[in-house]
């Protein structure tokens, strides 16, 4: 071929461009990430190391291919803001007038300062909320802006913010998944913390989620004769799932590890790249309550 070597080189560079773009550059950008103290709200490492049992559970998750039906990537479609009035200032009339002008309610001087902190504007865009906050500040009041991520995944309760690369830094194998037959598991630890529920769900998904298409994982459990007393982690089954009298179903080590992993799944910490206003803590502390 006349231009053989030239064409070969061109094809080589074209193909190596994708290697450069999707193998080398991500490794340079993300591959050396470490657990960082970039959690905006708490001075802690994020992500925390999973407890030892949960780390083994990740291996069980991988070996049994849970990733083929469950993803671990919460998506977010946008960010809305709630504006919370925390202090009506000295000149409450000014603040009340401002809020009445903006059609946010019918306030008078005393009423605007009552029942603080209270939300004066919900689900506004970032621009609208910032403008309102500035105006209230000029009028002498003090506001807090609470960030509210939105999206179908978030409304389903699968998470409170989008999943980012930092969430996977502490895991030996990153398994974000590519198909959702069942729900997303990125925050499973927040949704189903009851160990018995998790065990029964693995043993027979139909027992807790009727007619679920999820296969049963009976091989993770064993049937034992009840000793002097029932084991503490024996499954509490009902109806026809109950084993014969005198027997109990007990999770094997793999099941315990897997459930420990599932219960440790939590990615709700606000980060710079995934901002979020967590709910205010129950007890007031020295730290600024957000």
């Amino acid at each position: 071929m006349r231009h053989g070597p030239l064409v070969f080189l061109a094809a080589f560079f074209a193909l190596s461009a994708s290697w450069f773009g999707f193998v080398l550059t991500p490794q340079v950008q993300l591959g050396r990430s470490v657990q960082e103290t970039n959690s905006v709200m708490k001075a802690e490492l994020y992500p925390n190391d999973r407890p030892g049992n949960a780390r083994q559970g990740l291996e069980i998750y991988r070996a049994n291919g849970c990733v083929y039906c469950h993803s671990q990537q919460v998506q977010q479609n946008g960010m809305l803001v709630n504006v919370v009035l925390t202090d009506a200032g000295k000149n409450t009339m000014a603040v009340a007038d401002l809020l009445n002008e903006e059609h946010l309610g019918n306030f008078s001087g005393p009423s605007v300062g009552a029942g603080l902190p209270k939300t004066i504007l919900t689900n506004a865009s970032i621009d609208v909320a910032t403008v309102l906050a500035k105006n209230v500040k000029t009028a002498g009041g003090v506001t807090q802006l609470r960030l509210v991520p939105v999206g179908p995944d978030i409304e389903r309760g699968w998470g409170t913010r989008l999943t980012v690369a930092q969430d996977f830094v502490a895991d030996a194998t990153a398994l974000p998944g590519s198909l959702r037959v069942g729900p997303d598991l990125a925050n499973e630890g927040g949704r189903h913390r009851d160990l018995n529920w998790q065990y029964v769900h693995l043993y027979n998904p139909g027992a807790v989620t009727p007619k679920s298409p999820m296969p049963a994982y009976k091989f993770l459990f064993e049937q034992k004769k009840i000793g002097k007393q029932a084991s503490p982690d024996a499954l509490q089954l009902t109806g026809e799932l109950k084993p014969a009298a005198g027997y109990e179903i007990v999770p094997k080590a793999e099941a315990k590890a897997l459930v420990a992993y599932l219960v440790s799944l939590n990615s709700d910490t606000p980060l710079f790249e995934a901002p979020l206003t967590p709910p205010a803590p129950a007890k007031s502390t020295n730290a600024p309550a957000k």
């Binding site: 905006v40 709200m41 970032i126 906050a133 989008l162 995934a274 730290a287 957000k290």
Partner: peptide, 22 residues
Amino acid sequence: VYTPYVSTEQLNTIAAMQGPPD
């Protein structure tokens, strides 16, 4: 920058909105 955010400026604005960090 992750979808749905578009730029680091936007992320900085949002970070500033939350007040000074702890």
